[in-house]
């Protein structure tokens, strides 16, 4: 069905670039129209009514007019700003990572409502975690997330891979297809799409310690509300992130710049 001349949609702002005197070109993701590019004229002026709605990682209700090259934002009202997330460096970087992953993963005008909902749910979880962390920052790790915030990002990584059709295999060896044993010397190969057993270790691109494997299996097979609090050491967190980033970078055809900044 062709897009009408003027249409309404809620959207999440993934990206913006300054254009001309006071305009911004936005990359928006919407539930019904997928990823779209639009221009918000005059939105960099302090007095602009659009300014707060077109800020990054903001959910807003938009009225858009279809244009020849870019749609034009005619009205916008903020729905959610995720204010707590913006106040913590780790959480704000995680917000950037969610936006960048969606921008890389989605093609223009191809709706993917499940991914839209996943992104919003993740931002809400990060916002709640930032609120809790700002109220009581962990003295040992002042720039870090709580275990819930960290888990929210790993849940996002795994569900995003699943929804894009790249679900990594953590129960059987991707080479010989035998069930994986609970041992320390399994490996992981992003190009083959999952774990490899010790017998197929020649295909392993990185080690997959047992605790890392258990965490990945747990997050992959558990609903968010049932996911237990995981108190993990930094090494295991790094291992889990490393495995997921290797497979995300491969499938999104580039490593996520926001994630690199965090490390």
């Amino acid at each position: 069905m062709p897009t009408p001349h003027v249409y309404k949609s809620e959207a999440l702002v993934l990206r913006h670039i300054n254009f001309g005197e006071a305009d911004r070109i936005l990359t928006l993701v919407t539930p019904q129209h997928g990823k779209i590019s639009a221009i918000a004229k005059g939105s960099r002026k302090v007095t602009s009514k659009l300014a707060s709605a077109v800020d990054l990682v903001t959910r807003a209700q938009f009225v858009l007019a279809t244009g020849r090259e870019l749609d034009v934002v005619t009205q916008a009202v903020v729905q959610e700003r995720f204010d707590h997330l913006r106040e913590s460096l780790w959480h704000a970087t995680a917000g950037y990572t969610v936006a960048e992953a969606l921008d890389r993963a989605l093609a223009e005008r191809e709706p993917h409502p499940d991914i839209y909902v996943l992104a919003l749910d993740t931002l809400r979880r990060l916002d709640a975690d930032a609120d809790a962390w700002l109220a009581d920052p962990t003295p040992q790790n002042p720039a870090g997330p709580t275990s819930r915030g960290w888990a929210a990002m790993r849940f996002f990584d795994l569900v995003l891979l699943d929804l894009l059709g790249y679900r990594p295999a953590f129960h059987t060896c991707v080479s010989c297809e035998n069930p994986l044993q609970a041992v320390e010397d399994n490996g992981f190969n992003a190009e083959l799409g999952g774990a490899v057993c010790p017998s197929c270790s020649r295909y392993a691109q990185r080690r997959l310690p047992l605790l890392t494997l258990k965490v990945l299996r747990l997050v992959q097979t558990t609903e968010w509300h049932a996911l237990p609090v995981m108190r993990l050491d930094q090494r295991t967190r790094d291992d889990v992130e490393g495995v997921l980033q290797s497979i995300l970078s491969l499938n999104l055809e580039r490593s996520l710049k926001s994630w690199n900044l965090l490390h």
């Binding site: 990054l56 990682v57 460096l89 704000a92 950037y96 720039a143």
Partner: peptide, 14 residues
Amino acid sequence: PNYEGDYTAAYIAP
């Protein structure tokens, strides 16, 4: 007073 500006301030403050 936008996401990038807040982010930069959050980076510098610590």
